[in-house]
Simulated scan of single mutants.
Amino acid sequence: MKLLAVLLQAGLSQAGLRFACSQVSIQRLDPIVEPGRVPSTHVHQIVGGNAFNASMAGDIGEQASCTTCAYTEDLSNYWTAVMYFKHENGSYKRVPQYPNAQLGTEGKDAPNIQGGMTVYYTQKDFNNNGKSFIRAFPPGFRMTTGSPSANTLDAAKGHPGLRYTCLQTVLTRGSETPDFPAKPCPAGIMAIHHFPACWDGKNLDSPDHQSHMYSTIKGGFQEAGACPSSHPVRVPQVAYETMWDTSVFKDMWPKDGKQPFVWSFEGNGYGTHADYLFGWKGDSLQRAMNSTCMFHACGSPGVQGVLKTQTVEEMNKCAVKSTVVEETDGWLRELPGHMAPMAFKA
């Protein structure tokens, strides 16, 4: 009855968020899968609030003092593994990242977003949320999607929300594949991570960080199916897009034509995965989900919306001091914390 009252009060809405987050840290920490372990097994690229550390608990929205995301009230943390290029001589080099289309700069002379990713919070699709009320995540909520232990094409196909796009230009969309593109991509590779959007309504986490959620994802940004009775609460459809500039290695492509990219856990494209730790301040995410704004109309430089925004310069200033001091870039003889792909389980 309490949830029904909220539904009647809020009504249905049409809202969706798409915003950039610059890098807050690149290091071997994973407070969800390996809480307290320093260092964790493989390198992650992390964006969001500066409360990120090896052990995170409680209301993250009240712990961080800044964020690398465009919306100042979003102090959440979002992370994925890091992509590396594996040279024919056996050495590795971290693949650089670049901003997504229409999110790169504020103007000709403005600073550019530093790496990072694009984050989405959508409902039914990019136009409305259909007949479902979308409930914001509660403080302390966390989840993961995918698994680094997946090492077959069939396993990858079992996660329709985890895909890659071979970018012909920064605007290329569609033609998604479950594994790394087999040929060089002119504008790089976009890695896509869609999270489940059905919650059991009780648990902020689960032992495998996934069982408290249920996925109805059909792939891409298609409308998800109805939530089952076991996971009846519709939450925002969270998704990440990371633009990896693999084009800088076009002149180093292996002579045998073999695809040369690996994730930081020495995994091929099948084992892609991502982590989400909710940290929106107060009721800010629920306000956005209850509104009728879409993308830039929710708030952006020069546009007053339901959410507060900051400049790219302010985003780039927020950072986290590395707990794990090691080389993650340069040309490396081996991946940091290297271990066999099947040795680590989510």
Results as ranks from 00 to 15, higher is better:
V6D: 12
Q9L: 15
L12F: 03
G16V: 06
A20Q: 11
S22R: 06
V24M: 08
S25Q: 11
I26C: 05
P31T: 10
V38Y: 00
H42G: 09
H44F: 01
I46K: 10
V47S: 07
M56Y: 00
A57C: 03
G61F: 02
E62I: 00
A64R: 01
C66A: 08
C66M: 05
E73F: 01
Y84H: 02
N89R: 05
R94E: 07
Q97P: 00
A101Q: 06
G116H: 02
T122Y: 10
N127K: 14
F133T: 09
A136T: 11
F141P: 10
T144Y: 05
H159W: 10
P160S: 14
T169K: 13
G174L: 07
P181L: 12
P184C: 13
C198R: 06
S211T: 15
S211V: 05
G220C: 06
E223T: 13
G225N: 09
V233T: 12
R234S: 04
A239C: 06
W244E: 15
S247E: 07
F249P: 06
M252H: 13
D256V: 05
W263C: 09
H273A: 13
F278E: 10
H296A: 14
S300V: 01
V303E: 08
V303H: 07
K308N: 05
K308E: 03
T311S: 15
E313P: 05
E313N: 12
C318V: 03
C318F: 00
A319H: 08
S322F: 03
E326K: 01
W331R: 15
R333A: 10
G337R: 05
P341R: 06
P341W: 01
